[in-house]
Amino acid sequence: MSMTRENTRSACRICGARGAPEESFEEIACFRCATCGTVQSNVLPTVEELAKHYAGFSESYTAGMGAERFAREMPKRHAAKLALVRRHQPKGRLLDVGCGEGGFLSQALEAGFDAVGCDYSVRKEYAPRVQVFPGNLDAEGGLPFEDGSFDAVTSWAVIEHVRDPHAAMREVRRVLKPGGFFFCDTPLCGDASERDVAARSHWFCPPEHIHVFSYGSLSRLVWAAGLDVVYSTPSFERSAPRYVARRLRNVLVGVVLGRALRHFDPGAWERRRQSVVTQIGDIQLLVAQKPRS
């Protein structure tokens, strides 16, 4: 299946630009905005379709790792992210949006935060002290909390799942106190490894991932909601050795080998781009702050 270009398409849902997407993946019906770089599903799933898709999702979710590795790996990831949160907001009331199994909440509670969670799909049981409320980040007013309720809002691997990222960010801003911090990570698209690798990124997988952000488009989204970006990185890992290993893998496989095939056999590169899925890719991370006035 070859890549196609379309001359007419609705405006990008992130930056509002109109015109042809730079790249289209027909099999999964996604396009890449030629202006901001966000890869997004051509057609939004309905609320009912998402409800059906995520029914019981949190009970069995293992991020593709399998239960054993998930139980071993996720506490380490949570600890690295909690350390980042504490550098900006060492204590206070914290909301973890899309909290999943509640592992990050457990660690936040142990660290002294007054922490609660919110998720589209709520589990039957959580660890002791963990409180999770049903909510919908997709809709303004969808989080069941008063304005200015939290010193920190965390959202780990969530924003790529929502139908309306702008509404989601306005909702985050609403529940933050003035001066409060927003922390999120999300898959990255548009860097050299993703653009050159001879395969399609596994990040492109609607209806789970509806919007996959470029490094610039995530900041654009946050700024549009009235939050100030205070820190961002296009590649986040829980330890320096893992960061180096990921970067080497992405550069060698994604850039060097991908560009070589693209140069010597562009037809093969294009066919693989449409038919083969790769794990190559980065997670970007961003910290933003609500203005104090």
Rank of each mutant, 00 (worst) to 15 (best):
L286P: 02
V172D: 00
G281S: 00
S106L: 10
R259I: 10
N7A: 09
C99F: 05
F236C: 08
L248E: 09
L95I: 10
A67R: 01
F204I: 10
G148K: 08
A29D: 02
H263I: 03
G112W: 00
G16H: 09
H209W: 06
G100H: 06
R93E: 02
G102F: 06
G112I: 04
R200W: 07
R87H: 09
W203M: 04
V287D: 10
K290N: 01
L221A: 08
R86G: 06
Q279F: 01
V255H: 07
V256T: 08
G258C: 01
R238L: 15
G117M: 05
L285W: 02
G16Y: 10
S10G: 15
H209Q: 09
G117W: 07
S121H: 12
P241Y: 11
L285Q: 13
Q131R: 15
V287K: 00
G19H: 04
Q279P: 00
T35I: 02
G66S: 09
A198T: 05
V253F: 10
N136K: 12
V222Q: 00
H211T: 05
S60F: 12
V85L: 13
G254D: 01
A51N: 13
C205P: 02
P165Y: 02
R5N: 14
F213W: 08
S217A: 13
A108M: 00
Q107D: 02
R72T: 14
A168N: 03
K52I: 14
I159D: 02
E110V: 14
R86P: 04
M65H: 13
S201F: 07
F182Y: 11
F150W: 04
L252K: 06
R86H: 00
G64S: 06
P144M: 04
V244D: 06
F181A: 15
M3D: 13
H161W: 03
G117Y: 07
V251C: 09
G216T: 13
V251Q: 00
R195T: 08
E101G: 11
F213K: 01
R220I: 02
H202P: 00
V197H: 11
V256G: 07
M3N: 14
V276H: 11
P241T: 12
H88F: 08
A115L: 05
T8P: 12
P207I: 08
V47N: 07
S214P: 04
G19F: 03
S293W: 06
C99I: 01
P178C: 02
H211R: 13
I283H: 08
G135P: 08
E237N: 06
V130K: 07
T38I: 13
N250W: 13
